[in-house]
Design a protein around this nucleic acid. Structure first.
Length: 812
RNA sequence: GUCCGGGUGGCGGAAUUGGUAUACGCGCUUGACUUAAAAUCAAGUGCCGAAAGGCAUGCGGGUUCGACUCCCGCCCCGGGCACCA
């Protein structure tokens, strides 16, 4: 018998056998209940698979393997999200076509993924760059266009100077490009937009029923940013214009002492002739446009703005004449792009009012705040709680004053009544439409033709896919026009409508396009007639469990929910939400506690780990390293623990005999623990439980074959290769991965004796074993313990507390 | 600023209807085996203390017979959002 655990031999052998036997391929004909488990398909970067991929993929592999053995027909697919900037940037530098580098990276990824023993159904593999795939991405776009959810608009977009690319709101972090960290400014550009805002309410409200981890729900909710308030119209004096403002605090209307328009507000140009300082205003607007987001919100930046001389508005509440300003602290894209300023009750308005000497009028009585002494010193020095009233700005609610008939009312009531009298209810969202154009090469061409006569003409469905043309110069030009413009033969076409000369749209889709629906394609990945057949969609959707990164919460996850709801609306799918359950994994940081990156030199290559320790050890380690949802620090030394565990398991086989004495209580407990922990993704404690089991089994010379086999079955989802090998050596029939998932018997877990802990005044002083639960008897035993007696000499037990089968606490 | 997480040995971490704090693993110490080392096996390992005992879950209070766990306040770390009216 072999005594050494040769991971390389074992892993290669079993991977080949499983592949040959198609062990992991989904059986479409099966009548078992379906289970669709999904991981985010990787972007095939030239750097190869990251240990972070292994973490997330192993977790879902464990869940899929368990489900399979619980009697479900599993769909656990994989593919590649292969359009993207890194390959294109590399192409700009080297002239090598992104397709070549991407395909190479995909081959490498495939090899790496296979070496991990992940139970993917490889027969359904997809890649977003495949024309047969992006045909359907383009098809969805056409449908969006047809339903007025795709439109072209000239809007100020976030422009990354380094990448020469327009960015979606979601792709800008702290005012810099999420990708390259370069500065982002605003440019007016004609862009394709998707009207995700039309779905804001639905995206928000259906969140409630979904089984997503809380942080995901919270983030999406905040991102959608629903805000309920009122819209109030302010008429202008002497002019037939009105300005609408959005406010959540109508109750402060009597305190509105001026209005502020965002510099981009359209009414300013309409008012032009009536503004006596128009030049000054224009100057300010120009300056505001060239201000970047970083500058605009820079900390401690003083408020700026210009008064529109000659213009004044009427406060509808009290008829007062109030001035109108334009200032960049008011955002054009939120609410109506105009606000009523209430300096007494809003910090920002107050700052502005102070600078421009505008009146501050209190209309809500401030509530006193209770100040409590904090530290021991304060308390010792006799400091007492006291009430303080903030004097300057009070942003809270309270009783109204100086508000005519509404005085004496509390804020909520006043809001109701004042909305009714002066305006109307209004709901706004922070969510903005999705900037869908990219002036780049390596993406799906947007399938429309621009005709001077007919305007935007969709490419007929029969002509899909619009293939990405071959070009050799991938650099976008200075103005940010797409490199596709250089493919003259491709660009110049006849208009499908009028047959006149026309041009193809040269913008391509963002890399979020292909990933917004990929989970549907897995169901029917070779279908050329539809993105997915109705029948298969009905059978497999929605995804039962989807694990992925938190960084995709407001991007991919939200986008794909939007597309799916849209597909539902046009009858292409039969349910409204794509993912029933969403969980998330934490990052793996380098050994230096920093994010893994080439420049830091702290990247761990999974290939090396597989080579030296084996895929099973790597999998086990990554699951053992810490709580699945939290960031963890890589430790190569830490791999030794799981590796030793597998070594011990392998050697233990020599001691396995068919014997009667089993460790039933222990094993049933393990089955319970491991089963439950997998469901809650507490893989670290599941592994700990299996380590404890093995350690316990090894305490005896002989190990029961039944116990050992059971342990193998529990471990199989985590370490599929070694358990399969040992299962065969044990004489097991068929693959261990096809055996039913073990069940446990509660009765067998119960212990015969209980350990009773004895405390005196809450401190542990002793313990004893007890076979019964008789309160009086146990209390008596406790009071007579040698360790306890000395405490009873001075005084009597005032009270004795008994917690059944657990603890006695003697209170003196 | 605000919304989520999180703070426990030398290190990763375990423990939740409040009931033995430090499971499991790494590391370390000692011993066995070995010419030696590695590997492996065995014993030990929160801190202070010779011991008895005392002290320990970010800090300060509180509730309780009993608090890592609940309440009040604060500090620090990670992440999201941020002039959103």
């Amino acid at each position: 018998m072999e005594h050494n655990y040769d991971h390389k031999k074992i892993e290669e052998r079993w991977q080949a056998i499983w592949e040959e036997k198609k062990l992991n391929e989904t059986d479409e004909k099966s009548n078992k209940p379906k289970y669709y488990s999904l991981v985010e398909f990787p972007y095939p970067s030239g750097d190869g698979l990251h240990v972070g991929h292994v973490r997330s993929y192993t977790a879902m592999d464990i869940i899929s393997r368990k489900r399979r053995r619980e009697g479900f027909e599993i769909l656990f697919p994989i593919g590649y999200d292969a359009f993207g900037l890194p390959a294109e940037n590399f192409a700009v530098k080297t002239g090598i076509h992104p397709k070549i580098t991407t395909e190479k990276a995909i081959s490498n990824f495939r090899k790496q993924l296979k070496s991990m023993g992940l139970s993917f159904d490889w027969s359904r593999e997809i890649k977003t760059i495949d024309p047969k795939y992006y045909k359907w991405t383009q098809w969805i776009f056409l449908k969006l266009l047809e339903n007025n959810l795709a439109y072209k608009a000239k809007i100020p977009i976030n422009w990354c100077q380094d990448c020469r690319i327009g960015l979606a709101n979601e792709e800008v972090t702290d005012g810099v490009c999420e990708r390259c960290g370069g500065p982002v400014d605003k440019r007016e550009k004609e862009q394709w937009m998707l009207a995700i805002t039309k779905y804001a309410e639905r995206l928000l409200s259906s969140l409630e029923e979904l089984d997503y981890i809380l942080p995901v729900k919270v983030q999406q909710k905040n991102w959608i940013g629903k805000s309920e308030g009122a819209e109030i119209s302010f008429n202008l004096k002497f002019l037939d214009f009105k300005i609408n403002v959005f406010t959540t605090r109508v109750d402060t209307l009597f305190g509105a002492t001026y209005l502020v328009l965002s510099p981009e507000h359209k009414i300013i140009s309409n008012l032009g002739p009536n503004i006596s300082n128009l030049n000054e205003v224009k100057e300010y607007i120009k300056k505001a446009a060239s201000t970047t987001d970083i500058e605009r919100v820079a900390e401690g930046r003083e408020k700026t703005g210009v008064k529109l001389e000659g213009i004044s508005a009427i406060n509808p509440a009290n008829g007062e004449e109030i001035p109108v300003y334009t200032a960049d602290y008011v955002l054009s894209h939120y609410g109506s792009g105009a606000i009523m300023a209430v300096p007494a009750h809003d910090e920002r308005d107050y700052q502005f009012a102070k600078k421009f000497n505008l009146p501050v009028k209190k209309v809500v009585e401030a509530k006193a705040i209770l100040e409590i002494p904090r530290n021991a010193e304060d308390i010792a020095s006799g400091a007492k709680k006291r009430l303080i009233i903030k004097t300057e700005v009070y942003a809270g609610e309270g009783k109204l004053i100086n508000s005519g008939e509404f005085s004496e009312m509390e804020s909520p009531e006043a809001r109701e009544k004042m909305t009714e009298k002066f305006g109307r209810r209004k709901v706004t969202y922070k969510l903005r439409d999705w900037v869908f154009s990219r002036q780049r090469y390596w993406g799906e061409p947007i399938p429309v033709i621009l005709c001077k006569k007919c305007g935007v003409v969709p490419v007929p469905e029969s002509e899909l896919p619009v293939l990405l043309p071959e070009i050799s110069d991938f650099m976008p030009d200075e103005d940010g026009e797409s490199p596709l413009l250089k493919a003259k033969d491709w660009v110049n076409v006849k208009c499908p409508k009028c047959s006149g000369a026309a041009q193809r749209e040269t913008d391509v889709m963002p890399n979020w396009a292909g990933s917004s629906w990929y989970f549907l394609r897995y169901l029917d990945s070779r279908n050329d007639d539809a993105l997915v057949s109705k029948e298969k969609e009905k059978k497999w959707m929605p995804v039962d469990w989807y694990n992925g990164g938190m960084e995709h919460t407001t991007l991919h996850l939200l986008y794909s929910r939007f597309w799916y709801k849209f597909l539902f609306d046009i009858g292409a799918v039969s349910s409204e939400e794509p993912y029933k359950k969403r969980t998330s994994h934490g990052f793996i940081l380098g050994e230096d506690n920093e994010k893994m990156s080439k420049s830091r030199g702290n990247v761990i290559n999974p290939d090396e780990i597989v080579k030296y320790f084996g895929a099973d050890t790597l999998r086990l380690y990554e699951m053992f390293i810490g709580p699945f949802d939290q960031a963890v620090v890589w430790s190569t030394d830490g791999l030794l623990g799981p590796r030793r565990f597998l070594d011990k398991l392998y050697k233990a086989l020599d001691r396995v005999k068919v014997i009667k004495s089993r460790k039933e209580s222990l094993m049933h407990q393990s089955v319970k623990k491991v089963s439950e922990d997998i469901e809650s993704m507490k893989f670290n404690t599941a592994i700990s439980a299996m380590m404890i089991s093995l350690n316990e089994l090894l305490k005896d010379e002989e190990i029961s074959k039944e116990d050992y086999g059971l342990l193998l079955k529990l471990l199989a989802p985590f370490a599929p290769h070694i358990t399969e090998e040992l299962w065969q050596k044990l004489g097991g029939k068929g693959s261990i991965h096809l055996t039913p998932w073990p069940t446990y018997d509660k009765k067998k877990i119960v212990k015969k004796t209980n350990l009773i802990v004895v405390q005196v005044n809450g401190k542990v002083r002793g313990q004893f074993q007890s076979e019964n639960s008789d309160e009086e008897e146990i209390k008596k035993t406790a009071l007579n313990l040698d360790k306890v007696k000395p405490y009873l000499e001075d005084g009597k037990a005032r009270r004795v507390i008994y917690v059944k089968d657990k603890l006695v606490n003697i209170v003196l």
